[in-house]
């Protein structure tokens, strides 16, 4: 049951998750990051690290976020892996406060 990144990451992309991932299973586009489920080892390190709580273990995913399972699989396959922390996207802090974190 891998980690799944969901909508809160979009337009934030803080990448704290990438810094604590032991196996470099995150892939990124210009908007957010996604998990490669075949590389993820289900360690849960990324979940508390996310400043906007965008990441869930697949087994703990709320019903209304189930679509993110296939989005993660598909995007991770298309996009390059990222190996280290990046700058958050411009506007990330504003989005964080809108989300209430």
């Amino acid at each position: 049951m891998p980690a799944i990144v969901t909508d809160n990451c979009n337009a934030c992309r803080f990448t704290e998750c990438v810094a604590v991932c032991p196996v470099e299973c995150f892939h990124a586009d210009d908007d957010m990051v996604y998990v490669d489920r075949d590389t993820c080892i289900d360690c849960c390190a990324c979940i508390p690290a996310c400043p906007v709580q965008a990441i869930y273990m697949e087994g703990e995913l709320p019903e209304d976020k189930r679509q993110w399972v296939s989005i993660n699989t598909q995007k991770a396959a298309e996009l390059p892996a990222i190996t280290g922390k990046h700058q958050p996207l411009p506007g990330a802090e504003e989005k964080r406060s809108v989300l209430g974190y």
Binding site: E16, A19, C21, P22, C43, A45, C46, A49, K85
Partner: peptide, 11 residues
């Protein structure tokens, strides 16, 4: 801390 915590820490 778990395995990955040490990655950020070592960085």
């Amino acid at each position: 801390g778990i395995i990955g915590t040490n990655r950020a820490d070592s960085a």
